[in-house]
């Protein structure tokens, strides 16, 4: 059968999806991955929405779907070039190179750095944390701010759209995943701290996936999470170390001045494309900075560069299942083109 060699860059859900299809179709597959363990951001989350499946288990079962691949862990690819004969030359950190007939780029996204939104106090007040930090706390890898555990009548605020839908941070786009993450984490916080009250400040609730709307209802009905439509404009610390929040309840047209013991910022997903992908391999970008396929409808995995395919959240915010499917789709597209 084929003796073609395919390189996959990034072993998150999308890269693993691509590698699983390619390796099962008799191709020689090399997977280059920055971290030691496959899984991408799955290794940063505790339980996944909407059904609280342990994220690491999903990473393991996705990796188990691949057949013989040449896996290069701890291998951050800092440059790829394309020869006149159409082959790709991949430069590894130790200076060694590998040559491939086609390349699937599945480098994923970057979590928004919340300290860029100074008015929300991240990095200034220790009780302001991000959704990404909270995943580590829920997974038991990082402690909760200690006093919280003893405190009676804990007040927790959840702030949506941090670094998304925000021109000041250069991100006009909606990150899609953070609304349901906010709902999921509100429920997890209520379970962890039964004496807490959770208030979520949102601008629009985007419950696009199966089971998300149900989770949103559950949060309100079973966990008494209060959803307030309005943007938090300022956070300050009181003398007692509580967080003073200013917002507007836009549905009632009334201002809110409230105090919380913990604020969780729903950070967005940003583009994280390497220079070489754009400059040396000719990948185009959408306005939000993510990679652009040839078109959004029937060729989103293809690029103007022959043999180069895009997979997963390097193209825009996706869920785990969407990224995995998109990786498989990119591989399928590649196979169709090879056999043409």
């Amino acid at each position: 059968m084929h003796t073609k060699k395919i390189a996959v860059i990034g072993a998150g859900p999308a890269g693993l999806g691509a590698a699983s299809v390619l390796s099962r179709n008799g191709l020689r597959v090399s997977v280059f991955h920055r971290e030691a363990a496959a899984g991408g951001h799955l290794n940063d989350w505790a339980w996944l929405f909407p059904r609280f499946v342990p994220a690491r288990d999903v990473a393991v079962s996705m990796a188990a779907e691949t057949r013989q691949v040449d896996f290069h862990p701890g291998c951050h690819i800092a440059g790829v070039s394309r020869h006149a004969n159409g082959q790709f030359k991949i430069v590894m950190p130790d200076g060694q190179t590998e040559v491939a007939d086609a390349l699937v780029y599945a480098g994923g996204f970057r979590v928004f750095d919340a300290s860029r939104k100074e008015e929300l106090g991240y990095g200034i007040y220790p009780r302001v944390v991000t959704s990404a930090d909270l995943e580590k706390m829920l997974a038991g890898e990082v402690p909760f701010p200690v006093e919280l555990l003893q405190q009676q009548a804990l007040r927790i605020g959840v702030v949506h759209c941090v670094g998304s839908r925000d021109e000041k941070s250069g991100n006009r786009h909606c990150s899609r995943m953070c609304c349901v993450t906010g709902v999921k984490q509100s429920i997890e916080l209520r379970k962890r701290f039964p004496n807490s009250r959770v208030t979520a400040f949102y601008m629009d609730m985007r419950m696009f996936g199966n089971g998300y709307e149900e989770l949103y209802l559950e949060a309100q009905r079973d966990w008494q999470v209060l959803f307030v439509r309005g943007r938090v404009s300022e956070v300050a610390e009181s003398d007692e170390g509580r967080l003073r929040v200013k917002a507007e309840d836009t549905l009632l047209g009334r201002p809110i001045r409230d105090e919380f013991d913990l604020l969780v910022l729903m950070v967005g997903m940003e583009a994280d494309l390497p220079k070489w992908l754009i400059e040396d391999l000719g990948v185009k970008q959408i306005d939000a900075g993510f990679a652009r396929g040839n078109d959004e409808l029937v060729a989103s995995n293809r690029t103007p560069t022959r043999g180069l395919y895009l997979a997963g959240s390097c193209k825009g915010p996706l869920s785990v299942a969407e990224a995995w499917n998109d990786g498989q789709a990119a591989a399928q597209q590649l196979l169709l083109d090879l056999n043409r």
């Binding site: 601008m203 629009d204 309005g230 938090v232 404009s233 917002a247 309840d249 201002p255």
Partner: peptide, 10 residues
């Protein structure tokens, strides 16, 4: 404007 109310809060 997405009527988020940030202006009113501030």
């Amino acid at each position: 404007c997405i009527t988020c109310g940030g202006c009113a809060a501030a």
